[in-house]
Amino acid sequence: MDLTTILQQLVNGISLGSLYGLVAIGYTMVYGVIRLINFAHGDIMMVGMYFAVTGIVAMFLPWWAAFLLSMVATALLGVLVDRLAYKPLRNASRISALITAIGVSFFLENLFLVVFGGVPKAFPVPSVFGGVINVNGVIFPNIAIITPIIAIAFLLILLFILHKTKYGMAMRALSFDMETVRIMGVNVDMIISIVFAIGSFLAAVGGIFWAMRYPAINPLIGIMPGLKAFAAAVLGGIGSVMGAAVGGFVIGLSEILIVALFPPLAGYKDAFAFLFLIFVLLFKPTGIMGEDLERGRF
């Protein structure tokens, strides 16, 4: 492999990894505050893609308006899912909430299958994202360059919110001790809603850029990236936002690089994340940056 290809693959891997990272943040934040694996998260990302398509194709919005609308609507969907399906089970056993999450996931997938059918739909890629860029003779797709920039921008904004604002601090406090935070007079339900909104918003961002990368979408498209993003969240240390982002980069990069270096393994590329997950659990269950959230609380 020559240097040019390596460079292209590297950029490609970083770009893919930043998508996993964006989606992983939602998993990790929700897990942090209510200890729930939100199985529907990958499907919420899928809905974000359909919102964006609908905005462009059916509502004739300019692409930026359609994307923005999709992000906001997806954030609202995340809040709605939490309020309707998860909140009634806050005090029930953990398994009840997990089962409900699977129910929501299956519901979204099949509802969209019924409404839009299983045939992949083309995703209209705005021309800004469509072209290629030539850097000293090395050609990159625009989207591969833009994606990580957007992702890092959102990550910085999120880190600012988490560490510098009242709400962000409440979110972090919540992941340590919900009862104490409640006693201190914080509106816990609202904070949880904000977490779902942020997570779903970023899932929509990830989804839209995912859709532009492989410009076709279908109702089951959220499953695989969802699973890989979860693996990224665990790899980074579930509960840690920075960890989720780093985990995403690691998984995305290794997926691309393994296939580039060992082409016969290409068919197995969707199995890598799973192996990663197993290895992390075996050797570093607290992840790269996480603390042990599951410590016994006696």
Binding site: I37, L98, L227, V234, F274, L277, I278, P285, L293
Partner: peptide, 16 residues
């Protein structure tokens, strides 16, 4: 060997 609800996601991933 670890605590947490990883079984669900690992088995889901296994199915895929």
């Amino acid at each position: 060997r670890v605590r947490g609800d990883y079984l669900a996601i690992v088995t889901l991933g296994f199915g895929l």
